[in-house]
Design a protein around this nucleic acid. Structure first.
Ligand SMILES: [Zn+2]
Ligand SMILES: [Zn+2]
Ligand SMILES: [Zn+2]
Ligand SMILES: [Zn+2]
Lengths: 161, 161
DNA sequence: CCGGGGTTGTTATACTATAACATAACGAAT
DNA sequence: ATTCGTTATGTTATAGTATAACAACCCCGG
């Protein structure tokens, strides 16, 4: 398991800790799988984690450039693809944006709570939800594979304005 | 209720029937809500329903043009926005595409089974899933609103290749 | 007939993502 | 160390998705 606070994404916490832990964990996972966590990929992963909300590819690109790196979109998308393949980040379909995976190490499709007000995201992994969906699909003869679950609403902090 | 076959999207059926029913139903709903189902909007709705799989905005545009209509993207997006607002179609986030709503009349976020092989989509409305998600969100103090649920996999017809 | 809100036309542009091909870095085998 | 295949990166161009901004139009009630 990682050392992040997956279920407390909406609570106050030392996020630098999450970033460090995520990088450490990513290194371990890549070593294990013979994936090459290159400088670039690591940098992109860090930028994704640094943002407290899902971040778009072109924002990442800007930040890389601000760091004196002179890249183009494919650079960023390739890094993101690598990170997605290795289960280190997730893509939020309804935002065209990317966010760090709260419990990397196995391929999975997460369930995301997305605050419409502050844009922060929490990743869940609720078995009941998964099962309900799998059952529902099975009832229709459908063999479920990957699932996109993105729930919009208000996080605890944003409910009372 | 509509006269379509929501739960049998993967089964063989006379789709012309679905299209007609959807248009009739749309007319009724718009009348009821004082929404103007103009020629254009109706045409777009029809094109969305005609496709047996979710259809992109630019595909719709092409088809309108093939019909001698000389339009631009905003035309299509405006029609789509109208149809979305009135709950007559859904947007499939993971495909950037649009599909007819199987049970229009109330605002809702559907649950979609999307076949990775034939691209067809079935819309479900499973209470257990909804509740599981609502509960899961509530456990984290999150007030859920709209939910995007898109399940990729293989439909009954496509499971044996 | 007039006026105002809603609808459509039109042009331009923003934002997101990939194709295609050249070059470079790496790592195992000789 | 040299070679060679693989993987990663650089670079340019382009595809695909969506909206801004403003003008013209149409419909309907007053
Ligand atoms: Zn995850
Ligand atoms: Zn919030
Ligand atoms: Zn629906
Ligand atoms: Zn299928």
């Amino acid at each position: 398991m990682t050392d992040t606070y997956p279920d407390q994404a909406f609570a106050k916490h030392d996020h630098r800790h999450c970033i460090k832990a995520a990088l450490r964990e990513a290194a371990r996972i890549c070593r294990e799988r013979n994936g090459r966590l290159t400088e670039q990929r690591q940098r992109v992963l860090e930028l994704v984690w640094k943002s407290h909300k899902p971040v778009g590819a072109y924002v990442i690109l800007e930040q890389l450039r601000a760091d004196g790196f002179n890249g183009a979109p494919p650079t960023v998308y390739r890094a993101l693809d690598f990170l997605l393949e290795h289960g280190l980040i997730h893509r939020i379909e309804s935002l065209n944006a990317y966010t760090g995976c709260a419990h990397p190490g196995e391929q999975h499709s997460g369930q995301f709570l997305i605050c419409s007000h502050c844009q922060r995201v929490a990743e869940l992994d609720d078995l009941k939800v998964k099962k309900a969906i799998r059952n529902s699909a099975a009832l229709h003869g459908f063999k479920a594979d990957h699932q996109v679950i993105e729930i919009r609403g208000l996080c605890p902090q944003c409910q009372d304005h």
